[in-house]
Amino acid sequence: MTPTTSPKLKILRERLSLPKPWDNVVIFLLNILIAIPIFIIAHQKLIDPEWWMESDRILLFLIILIVIQLILRLLKTVLIICIFIYLAALAWGTVFGGYGFYSVFEDYRSMVYSMADDPNPQDIIISKLLPFPNKSKIMDAVNFDNPKVRNFALMATTKHFTHVKGFKQYRRIIQCFAVFTEVRNRWNYVNDPKGKEYIAYASESLQHFSGDCDDHAILMSALVRAVGGTPRIIHTGGHLYPEMLIGKKADLENINYLIKEVLFKEESRGKEVHYHIDERGQIWLNLDYTAKYPGGPFMSEEILGALTFN
C-alpha cells in the first residue's frame, strides 16, 4: 500500500514554499553565503597538492557547492520556516536594539576577511627563560593610578575613534588603540644618560613624551591599564616593548578587521597584523613605538621574558 500525504499537510507545504523560480534563487544565494567561509576554512586546513592552475582548489569549491546545494534542496520546506524565524529575530533586534541585520553583516565580513588574510607570526610563549631586568623598578614605574596618567588616557579616548559604531564588545580595545595613536603621534626617542639605565615613571614621561624603549613600554602599559586594558612588557635582550591582551583566537578576526579596515586602514594597507599567543591561548598584540599601527612588525623576534600587569 502506497503511503499518501494528508491534504492539510500538502496545503501547509504549498503555503511555506516559495514560487518558482524564487525558491531556487534563495537556495543558491544561501549556498554561496555558506560555501565561501567553509571553502576558506577547508583551503587553510587541507594539504595543498599544488595541482596545475590551482585546479585542486577549484574542484574543492565545486564539491562544497554541490553538497550544500543538495542539502538545502532536501531541507527546502524546513529551511523556509527557519529563514522566516531568523529574519523576524533580526528585524526585532534591529528595531528594538540588540543583534540585528547590521551585526550579521559586520560579523560575516570580518570572518571572511580574517580567514582570507591570516596574520602571522603566531609565536607561542611557553616559558620565561631569564629573570626580567629591573622588574621591581618597572612595576613601580607603571603608575597607572596616577591622576595625570588617567587623565591623559581619558583625553586620548575622546580624541580618537569616537565615531566607530557596531563594535560595542570591543569598546575597551578601541579605547586602548586611541591611547596608542596619541602616544605614537607624540613619542620622541631619546637615549638614556651615558652609562646609566634611567627608568622613568609613566607620569614623568607624560611631560615631554620622550625616552627610550623601556620608557615607552612603561608609559603605554600604564595608559592601557588606566582605561581597563591588560598590558604586558616583552623583554628581548636589548629591547623592551609593550603588548596588550585582545582576547582569544575567536576575537582575532574582529580585531584584525578593525585594524585593517576601520581604524588604521592607511597605516596597515598591504601589511600583516603581528601578535603572540601565550600558553593559555590568549592573543597579545604588539604596541611598540616602531609600529605605525597596533600589531605592526616586531623590532625583535627573540623573546626572553614577559612582565604582565593584571
Results as ranks from 00 to 15, higher is better:
M1S: 15
P3K: 11
L9R: 15
I11C: 02
E14H: 12
S17W: 10
L18Q: 08
P19Q: 11
K20E: 10
W22E: 09
V26G: 00
I27G: 02
F28E: 04
I32V: 14
I34T: 12
Q44W: 10
I47W: 01
E54Q: 11
F61W: 12
I63L: 14
I66R: 07
L70E: 04
L72W: 03
F84L: 09
F84C: 04
F84P: 00
I85W: 12
A91W: 02
V112L: 14
N120P: 00
L129C: 01
L130C: 03
P131C: 12
P133V: 05
P133D: 04
N134C: 08
S136F: 05
I138D: 01
N143M: 05
F144C: 06
K148E: 13
L154R: 12
A156R: 03
F161I: 05
F167R: 02
C176D: 04
F180S: 01
V183G: 06
R184Q: 14
Y189S: 09
Y189V: 11
P193D: 14
K194P: 04
G195T: 06
E197V: 01
S205K: 09
F209V: 01
V224F: 11
V227C: 06
V227H: 04
G229Q: 11
R232W: 12
G238T: 14
M244H: 04
L245H: 13
G247L: 13
A250W: 07
E253M: 10
K265D: 01
E267F: 03
R269E: 13
E272P: 00
V273M: 15
G281S: 07
L287E: 07
Y289D: 06
T290P: 00
G305L: 08
